[in-house]
Every structure is written in C-alpha cells, then in structure tokens.
Amino acid sequence: MTQISQSTFSAGLLDADFPAPPGLTNAAGEHSPRRYAVYRNNVFMSLRDALGEAFPAVKKLIGETNFNNVASDFLRSNPPSSPLMMYYGAGFPEYLENVPQLSHIGYLPDIARLEQAMRHAYHAEDVTPADPSALSHMSEAALLATKFVFAPSVHIIKSPWPILSLYNFTMLPNQPKPQRRAEDILITRPEFDPQPHALPDEGAVLVESLIKGMTFGQAIEQAGETLQLELALSLLLTSGAVTQFITNEET
C-alpha cells in the first residue's frame, strides 16, 4: 500500500510538471492525476489572487495577463511562510527588479514597495497621534532637543521615480500626468485608511533620522541645507505620524 507523506503530496503543488503522487485514486481505485490537480489549482489560484489583491497598482500597470505570469513565477519559488496572507508577497518588489521583461518599467518595484507599505500600515497597531500644540510653547532650544515617537503605521519609501504621482494616476480618476522627478513618500494612517504623502526635499532623511532616535536638531542637521523644514514639519504634525514628543526633561 502506497503511503504518501506530506512532503510527497506537497512536492507537486507548486509545479505543474511534477507528476501526481501514486496512491491517490478515484472511487474505483484508478490513479487520477486530474483529482490531485484540483489541489494544485486551488493552491496556485489562491496565491496568485492573493498577490493580485496585494499589488493592485502593479497589476493595473502591467495588465492582468502579464501580472498573472509574473505572479505565477514568483509564487512557485516563494510560497507564503505564514498563514497571514495579508502580509504575503514580502519579496515581490525585489523579485520584480529581476524580471527582464519588466526592466523597461523601472518604477514598478517601487510601486510594489508603496503598496506593500500601505498594506502593512493598514494592519498596524492602533495609536493616538500626539497633540502638536505641545510644541507651540517650547523654546527653540527645547524644540531642537525634542525626540519624536512615530506611529507603527509610518513608512518611508524613497524613490528616484515619481511613484506617488504614478500610483495616483494609476489608481484614482482625474489625476494629472506624472512629471519626471524623484518622489519620497511618507505613509501614515490617521484612522483606518493609510495615506501616502509626498515628502518635501530631504524630508525623508529628516523623518528617517527622527525614527532612528535623533533629536529634532540632529535630524535637521542630517537632512542638510536643502531641507524644506517648514513643509516637512507641518506634514509630520498634521498627518498623524507622531504619537509622542519626548522633551529633554523626559529623557
């Protein structure tokens, strides 16, 4: 009697060329690869659909047929490593970088990174944003010595491409045609819907430095002279990105 281990059963689930294991039959006891193929098809389609749901802008940009081909190749070598399908596709942006047929769409991996970050932000822990008025009574010295604590939903995406303009142009109606420029994105989640914001010049360095635990003054220095400080600070304070200001006295 053929015994089928789960290694044997699963070996052909992601590979259509792999023969169906022996010992799997129909009611009459006849070997039936077609029946095994139902599982293979379920696995394949469910993972492909999960990637399509996770990366709708990538799918729209390259079209359903191309997306399905790329997703199928990806999932064969990258099945999920956890049952939390909401996070599936961690390696997909990097994978896209190495698909020769897509190399002419240089911004595609960054669009995938943006979608992935939005998805993580969607499921991030709930927090209450800090009240920006806490900063208004501070002396300049105290402000520069302040550290910022960020919401778990905050993500930064840096790109040499206009990825937010491209993303909006792809996903929303009546958007202007993207102009060729670099765009860095700050993702926040004020309540339940993640919001991507374009960061002003050197704003990404400022926020990344703050996230690393630098004081506001140190982060400004890190960002350099071309930093559009007022724009960056106003975005941080109005977007719900910050959950706490730690003043010098508290540290």
Binding site: I4, Q6, S7, S10, Y39, P79, P80, S81, P83
Partner: peptide, 17 residues
Amino acid sequence: AWSTHDSAFFNDLLPLP
C-alpha cells in the same frame, strides 16, 4: 486538513489519509 509543510503555507485545505 493540513496547509503548512516545511514552513511553506499552501493556502488550501489539503487532505490526509
């Protein structure tokens, strides 16, 4: 059913003898 083997999650309910 089972759905995980060798750290791969297959996102389907697979059968057992």
